[in-house]
Nucleic acid binder design. Structure first.
Lengths: 205, 205
DNA sequence: ATAAAGAGAACGAGGGTTCGTTTTTCAAAA
DNA sequence: TTTTGAAAAACGAACCCTCGTTCTCTTTAT
């Protein structure tokens, strides 16, 4: 009967999540009050609770949102290009661009912490991380088969090191916003470029 | 006049901090109640408040504890050996060993999150990170002067990448305890070893 | 006109902190 | 050595405020 459009409902939901994101990134999950979120979203508690049955649900939705975005990135990149080197370059490009979203990064860090104590969040985060790792591992393995990467390297371990270069930069940038991404990326490429992607054929160390 | 010994006071303080560390690593800062800490320390609120005037003070003391430990590690290593490669190896060894302290790592992650919203903690953490980065940078620069490292690399950026390899592993290990440190370290060395530490004299990429 | 959507006051639990009381400790007196 | 006394140290019940959530009432859209 007097239901509002589905799009409107979806918009409200997003409005709340955006507000929550802003609050969470500034004060953290547990220091953000529902009143904070309501104020930021310019909605009353009654309205908010129509969309999320508890604060915990908002946090969970937050994980899901970040997770979907991250996975989408990898999928998109994998679809576009096929040369291993290009794929890795593109992924790096996209990932490091993500750092521009300071608020999103702050929420990510908040989620790392939440994972320590919240089983539900931990499981989602763990799965997310493992999806990314698997994607990287597959790419490395593929490149090894095609002679683009030293076959002696453990693909899983290499993938984990690559993960670290993302996670680590997110953290360092959150502590010191002056950190420059350009030189960082350049350093990684220079440091890994040599041994790693042997374009010629020099194998052994 | 009936004061108890200084050592006893110090021991009580440590007792509280240890208890807090255990609680924080399990439930996070803001979900740990003072009652939790009291119970874990087997002390009453009154006693705890004799040593720390507020929960916030316990958190601040926690940062300081972790910070001191971390700095001590670098200093110790720098004192013992002088060959650049050995120093880096030793630092890596020591740092990665630190991962065994699961509780400590959980607290670290908690601190990363706390830094987002707590100015005081952020400043301490920032300084800590920058101390470590500076130490690494100095080592790299020294190595470049001695022809052990490609002089074209930006020492600061290299230091940041090295930081990431630690931070990233802490995080990944917290999400999946099965991650093996050995292969990870080996991968880093293999990935960087080539271009990075040119023992011979091959410069250009 | 009617039911969904939103508002916002209020409730109740939880938790940081306080404070009056009890216990412990140690120096000095007996 | 034992007793004693006074202040530090510890206890723990209670205070009070904050915040998640609820519930009734109003508004809005069809």
């Amino acid at each position: 009967m007097p239901k509002v459009t589905e799009a409107h409902l979806e918009a409200r939901r997003k409005q709340i999540l955006d507000a929550a994101g802003a609050c969470f990134s500034q004060k953290g999950f547990h220091q953000t009050t529902m009143q904070d979120i309501c104020a930021q979203a310019e909605l009353s508690p009654g309205a908010v609770y129509r969309y999320f049955s508890a604060k915990e649900e908002i946090i969970a939705a937050m994980v899901d949102e970040r997770r979907r975005e991250g996975i989408a990135l990898i999928q998109a990149v994998k679809r576009e290009r096929h040369d291993t080197l290009d794929v890795l370059d593109e992924i790096a490009e996209v990932f490091f661009n993500r750092l521009e979203d300071v608020q999103g990064c702050a929420v990510d860090i908040e989620l790392w912490s939440e994972s320590q104590s919240n089983r539900r969040v931990k499981e989602l985060m763990r799965r997310d991380a493992s999806d990314v790792t698997e994607a990287f591992t597959a790419i490395i393995q593929h490149a090894q088969k095609h002679g683009e990467v030293n076959p002696d390297l453990d693909p899983l371990a290499v993938a984990q090191v690559m993960n670290s270069s993302f996670y680590g930069l997110i953290l360092q940038k959150s502590l010191d916003t002056d950190i420059e991404i350009g030189p960082y990326v350049q350093a990684i490429k220079a440091m890994m470029g040599g041994t790693f992607w042997l374009k010629g054929a020099r194998k052994g160390a």
